[in-house]
Structures are given as structure tokens and as C-alpha cells.
Write a protein that binds this DNA or RNA. Structure first.
Lengths: 335, 335
DNA sequence: GTGAAAGCGCTAACAC
DNA sequence: GTGTTAGCGCTTTCAC
């Protein structure tokens, strides 16, 4: 059925080795022979067998991208960029959709050979410490991407989550808001980066944090934002602004405001993080902190690629830039 | 580094064949031996090498799902469901994000061995005839999923696109709309299913189609819907309803209406297809035709699985059910 | 510059 | 019920 190296060799009247050399761009091949081989390859529509090559070399040319189901602020954007960045380096990408509730992902990936990949990019928010440990222990190159990674010894391309939160809250303060709530925080851990940034911004403005104004969200789903915002907006000391740790949460929060009969931003301003496309079409358009996903993706791919080459290189860490994008949900005058 | 069958065999003091038997659940193994093997497997943390197995058996246990970048009405939902359906049958899924502008996808997938997969699910809207032909010619099991597939001899799990369009337009008519435009149509081909359904509904209501009320959309992007709707709403014979062939288009169309100073649904009703989550949070919430993506996914996976088993079975075709979901963008009173 | 042959880890005949 | 062995398609020393 499918033709093999041997078939090509026979047709071109050379040895298997020579064909292999041509396929892999080995330089020292005479023009005549090269031409003969190329003709034979074309004629037989020969394509190398990936499994055989992998078995032999141990390289698959594939990277895995582990994304939580609904737990990343900008999954589509990130996936797109990663696929692109990987492609330009000759890697293909398999996207592993894994919810925190999904038992399958962790063990599967932790297993160094279940899915034959050369390296793994794990979205930091989802990454359970054990998974990362297991991967690292198996000698599999791993890079944590996005979020504020806190796992041990592992390459990371992070976002300055604390800084992003601080900038967002700063923007709300400049817009004249004073009772600023936050959704997606970890109330039990005031040291968590987004919470820290939130507090820092308030402190700077000389404002004391209201205890009940910090609400958790189990995931970055619209429904999570909706639920939290409803609770927030039903309080007697109703906030006049809500900072959400991601755009999907913010979308849910806006809907909650409307359902509560409130206007955004007149009654309550809403702000997210991630700059997903949805926020550019929502009504009102969503103010957000844009994270450079292209940078995130390119750096992450560069990091795994580097680690695949040199497994013992020093652990590296970079931070992606972010920018506040004021839109209608905080600033009625801008579009 | 990683242990092999041979290592396990040595440790368990049996032959490789026996280990292989145990691994693959071959029944005729004595309990004693089985136990010894299992212990050795656990102790060595043995995991089968997928590449070797694939090389030997020709089976990868992987399905590819080819999704266009922005050209499917409900990519997230579909991907999720397909991964789930495949998982329950022991298949993993690699998602191939491929835009129509993306040169890479077609040849790569057409190549029967570039990405070692057992079968391919191709989202119908994106499927260029050549790709499908090439795959089929290479003897690779292919199933077209979603959309109204028109390619030749190939398993399909389709959506009754014409029926969905007819039902949607019917709903708009019942809501009292009379000047109903459509976005995503193919004006050059009045026989195209969505257009046919649109016309059928109008005809039934005794309405003559307005030529300029049928606008194409190159893809299912919010921006495409925005652009088309702006043009539509600037016409002297402004439509009082817009039926969009997908939810993302409808989201864009709603935004265009607001930017033109119009109210939805008071001035213009908007309806989509797909029931994406975004439409349940948009303002107003988006009326839509919900397609049973779970059904789509399960049937599609069942079809490839069947074809992988029996490559020569007769070509099958099923149609997924759909339902009209009235929401605020057409019916101000419902939520 | 090119060829011969070994072997990556696994499964499947085929013996026993 | 278990062991032996060939070989999937490829890359890679090592000769020539």
C-alpha cells in the first residue's frame, strides 16, 4: 500500500541509506543521485513513517499543550499562537483539553510515553503540582505557561498576575471608583498574586479592603462570574466596580449586573483580564488587561525547544508584558 | 532510562510474549504468572512504547479532528464532545486547527502518515473537496461532521442546514417580522441549503425574497457578521430581522445594530445557529437554533470507529437533530 | 559519497 | 499456557 524507504531505494537504484540522507537533508550527496531519489520519492508519493522514525530516534516532533477546560482566561488565543509558534520551529501540537475534574489528563501525561511527545506546555492555572513533578521526574521537558506559576524547579513563561491586578484596580480607581470588589481571588490566601495586586492598589489609594468584597471563583467560566457577581451586588455595601481575574468571569459579571437591574458602567464598572474577542463585541465592550499571548506562546515554545536540546540547561523564567485596555465597561466615553 | 517489555520479562522471569499477553489483556494467562508480571510492571513503572506498538500494528489509537479557525459555528462545544466520545471508545484526539487560509493542514492530513492517526473527523464547512478526496484515496477513514456535506463518497454526520434555516426564519416570521435578511448565505448559489431553507420559509409565508437581503460571509467570525450587518442596516429597505448562519456571525450583527443606533430586537431581530455559550450571556441573549453537538460527536466517532473496523462497509449518513431556542434577541419577553 | 547491517520496542505467527 | 523469533520502517555506525 504505502511505499517505504526500500521501495524508493529500489526505484532510484541506490541504497536505503542514501535515500535517508536525501530525505533528511544530509549535505554530501551528489546532485545526480539526489535528483534520482527525489524523482522516485515524488513518483511513489513516499512519506516517511513517523512511528518508525520516532521509534528509532526517540523524537516525535510533537509538543503537547495542556489546557484546562474553562480554566484559562484566553484558551483559544493561546492555542492558536502556540500552534503557530511551534509550527515555525517544525513542531506540531496536540492540544490536551483537561478539566480539573478530568482524571484522565494528569496520569496520561505524567506517563512519559503514553502520548509520544517531545515536550509539554502546561497552562499554569491548571497545573497540579503532582503532574508537573511527575513529568519532570520522567525527564520530560515541561514549561509552565501563563498564570503565576508557583511550582518548583521548572521553566516558566509567566504573566505578572499581581501587576495586572494592580493596574486594573488602579484604572478603576482613576475612573473614580471607591468600592472595588474582586472575583477570582483566593480569600483564604491574601498572599495570592492577584489578591496581592488588588490590595496593593487599594492601599496606595488609601483605601481599606472590604472583607466581603473578595470572592473566589472555582474556574474561569461565565457562570462562575455570574454567580459571584450576583452575590456581590446583593450586598448592602454594594461595590461600584468589580475586577474579575479573567474576561469570561467579567462577561458573567456583566450579565449578573443587568439581571439585577443595574447599569454597566454607570452603577457598577466591570473589568477583566485576557482581552478575548468576545469582549470586543459585548455590550458594553469589556475593559480588560491584555496579555501578550503571542509573546507567551513564542517564549514557551522557545523554552521547551531549548530544553529538548539541552535537558540540563539552567531553569529559565520570563514574564509576558500586559496592557490595560479601557473600554465601555469602565469608561462610557471610549469604544 | 525507560523500561521495556524485555526488562519486565526478565524481572518477572517470563518471556516477552507473556508480558505482552498480560499487557494486552489476553485471557489465557495463569493467575500466578499474571500476578508476577503485574508486579514487575508496577515496580519498573513500565509503559508500552506507543511508537513501537504503532509501527507493529499500524494502529495509533488516535483520531484527528480538523477544525477550521473561525469557520465552525460551535468549535469549542464540538471539540469537547468529540474528545469525550472518543475517550469512551479508547481513542485520543488531536485537534487540528486549520483555517481555510492555512496551507499546511490539507497536505499534512492528506498525507496518510504524516500525523499517525487511525481516522479523521473533518468539519464539513472547511473541508475542501481535494482534502477529502486525498484522504479517502489514501485509504484513511474519514467522516465529515456538521454542516451540509456535499462531497462525494464519504461517511457523514450532518446537520439539516436547510431545515435549521427554515425553522429560524419561520420563527422570525411568527414573531411578526417581514423584511428578513440573511448573513452567511451564498448569493451565487440559491440552491445552497441555508439559502434554500430561507427561501422556502419566505415562500411559505407568501413573501418574495429581496435580492440585496442575502449577504455572504467568508467565515463564521464576529467581524464577518459585523461587516455584513452594517451593510444591511444601511440600506433604504432596512431589514427588520437578520438570520445569521451561525452564532458568532449573529453576535457581530447585534453589535453592528447597536453601533448603528438600532435596538435589538425592537428595531431589528437577530438570530443565529449553534447555541454557543456566549449567546446565553450576551445582551440581549441570542435566539438560536441549537444543534445537538453531543449527538454529532458521538455519531461521528461511532462512524470512524466502524469504518476503521470495516473499511469496506457501506457509506453511512445521519442527521443531527436541531431545536429553535427563542431568546431576547427575537422575543423581548423571554429570557 | 554510498552501501550493508544492526537494532529501536513491540506484536504475532508458530513451535512446544 | 508459554517461549522463540521474525520483522514493522527507519536511522545510524561502520566499512568501503
Amino acid at each position: 500500500m504505502a511505499s517505504t524507504l526500500k521501495d524508493v531505494a529500489r526505484l532510484a537504484d541506490v541504497s536505503v541509506k542514501t535515500v535517508s540522507n536525501v530525505i533528511n537533508g544530509y549535505p554530501h550527496v551528489s546532485p545526480d543521485v539526489r535528483h534520482r531519489v527525489e524523482t522516485a520519492v515524488a513518483q511513489l508519493r513516499y512519506r516517511p513513517n513517523v512511528s518508525a522514525r520516532t521509534l528509532r530516534t526517540g523524537r516525535t516532533g510533537v509538543l503537547a499543550l495542556v489546557l484546562p477546560d474553562g480554566d484559562v482566561p484566553y484558551p483559544d488565543e493561546l492555542a492558536r499562537e502556540v500552534v503557530r509558534a511551534a509550527g515555525s520551529r517544525g513542531y506540531r501540537v496536540v492540544i490536551e483539553q483537561a478539566g480539573p475534574d478530568d482524571e484522565r489528563a494528569a496520569p496520561t501525561l505524567a506517563d512519559a510515553r503514553a502520548m509520544p511527545v517531545d515536550g509539554v506546555l502546561v497552562s499554569a492555572p491548571v497545573a497540579p503540582a503532582e503532574l508537573v513533578e511527575a513529568l519532570a521526574a520522567a525527564g520530560r521537558p515541561v514549561v509552565l505557561v501563563g498564570g503565576e506559576a508557583r511550582h518548583g524547579h521548572c521553566d516558566r513563561v509567566t504573566v505578572d498576575v499581581a501587576g495586572a491586578a494592580e493596574d486594573a484596580v488602579g484604572h478603576l480607581l482613576r475612573a473614580g471608583r471607591r468600592r472595588i470588589a474582586a472575583i477570582g481571588a483566593c480569600p483564604t490566601d491574601p498572599g495570592a498574586p492577584p489578591t496581592a495586586g488588588y490590595h496593593r492598589a487599594l492601599r496606595r489609594a488609601g483605601l481599606a479592603p472590604v472583607p466581603g468584597h473578595l470572592l473566589p471563583a472555582s474556574q474561569h467560566r461565565r457562570a462562575d462570574g455570574y454567580r459571584a457577581a450576583r452575590a456581590l451586588l446583593a450586598r448592602p455595601d454594594r461595590p461600584d466596580a468589580i475586577f474579575c481575574h479573567s474576561d469570561p468571569l467579567a462577561i458573567g459579571a456583566m450579565r449578573a449586573a443587568f439581571d439585577a437591574g443595574l447599569r454597566v458602567p454607570a452603577d457598577v464598572a466591570v473589568m477583566g483580564v485576557g482581552d478575548i474577542e468576545e469582549g470586543r463585541y459585548s455590550r458594553p465592550t469589556l475593559s480588560t488587561v491584555s496579555v501578550d499571548t503571542g509573546f507567551l506562546a513564542r517564549e514557551a515554545v522557545a523554552r521547551v525547544a531549548a530544553r529538548i536540546e539541552r535537558p540540563d540547561a539552567a531553569v529559565a523564567m520570563v514574564t509576558a508584558p500586559h496592557t490595560v485596555l479601557p473600554r465601555e465597561s469602565t469608561d462610557p466615553t471610549v469604544r
